[in-house]
């Protein structure tokens, strides 16, 4: 299949950036990133600078790949990362627009690569259970109801890709943050620090320059792991509860 690519090229964060047009010959068994590999080999053969994009596992789990394809983070397929997207989702002759994840809190590094270290700092602010190595009791000491463990797991599958932020008109990180808050908060091991965690992670989220949530819901639609909006609702409830409680104690 012959494709027309419109790829966002930007040398660095200080540079303005613009779309460049390329033609590439692909086949439907290729993954989207393999199609970009082909493009890059073409560019290198012409001694031009290849398109920088982030990727590593190429199987939908590391969260590295991050591009907006025809206006949608991770492209047209529901529940699929860019690296898992295959060219059979496109037609011969298609024009495909490829852009970086855009958000105030995700500055562009180069071309399609952005800086998502804000996510790390949100986790550092409280996305953990405070237990040192060697302090644990036996793994079976606290039984956890199967469905509850399953619910915590569903939230824990977030891959930290940032598509939720890119999809949100406000650039909010609510889905990402609430997924971690839910994962840990539902489990007995994480409950102890729950209120403190909610408050500090929300604060970190704001400080990183992520926007406010206005319940658009695009985040969950574009999330490759289909993280549910319920997490956001739960976090909002818990945030209000925790704020009230902490006001009382102050």
């Amino acid at each position: 299949m012959k494709l027309n690519l419109k790829v966002w090229r930007q040398r660095s964060n200080n540079d303005k950036g613009a779309f460049a047009t390329y033609q590439v010959e692909a086949n439907e068994h290729m993954s989207f990133l393999e199609m970009l590999d082909v493009l890059n080999e073409q560019l290198i053969a012409k001694k031009e600078t290849p398109v920088a994009f982030e990727h590593d596992c190429r199987e939908g789990i590391c969260g590295a790949c991050s591009m907006v394809i025809n206006g949608r983070p991770h492209g047209p397929q529901q529940g699929t990362t860019t690296c898992q997207l295959h060219m059979r989702a496109f037609e011969d002759g298609d024009t495909i627009f490829i852009e970086p994840f855009r958000a105030r809190a995700f500055p562009v590094v180069k071309d399609l690569v952005v800086d998502r270290s804000g996510f790390d700092r949100i986790i550092q602010s409280g996305g953990f259970v405070s237990v040192n190595t060697g302090q644990a009791q036996d793994g079976n000491a606290i039984p956890i109801e199967k469905d509850l463990a399953g619910e915590a797991f569903d939230a824990a599958t977030c891959i930290g890709c940032g598509a939720c932020v890119a999809a949100c008109p406000n650039g909010a990180a609510m889905l990402f943050t609430s997924a971690k808050v839910t994962h840990l908060g539902l489990l007995p091991q994480g409950k102890v620090e729950h209120s403190k965690r909610v408050l500090s992670m929300v604060k970190a989220m704001d400080e990183e320059g992520f926007g406010m949530c206005s319940n658009v819901g695009a985040c969950s639609v574009e999330c490759p792991k289909e993280i549910s909006l319920e997490n956001i609702a739960r976090m909002n409830r818990d945030y209000i509860g925790a704020s009230l409680a902490s006001d009382k104690t102050v």
């Binding site: 259970v129 644990a136 606290i142």
Partner: peptide, 8 residues
Amino acid sequence: QCVAQGVP
């Protein structure tokens, strides 16, 4: 250790 950290 992993259970204590909240590994589901």
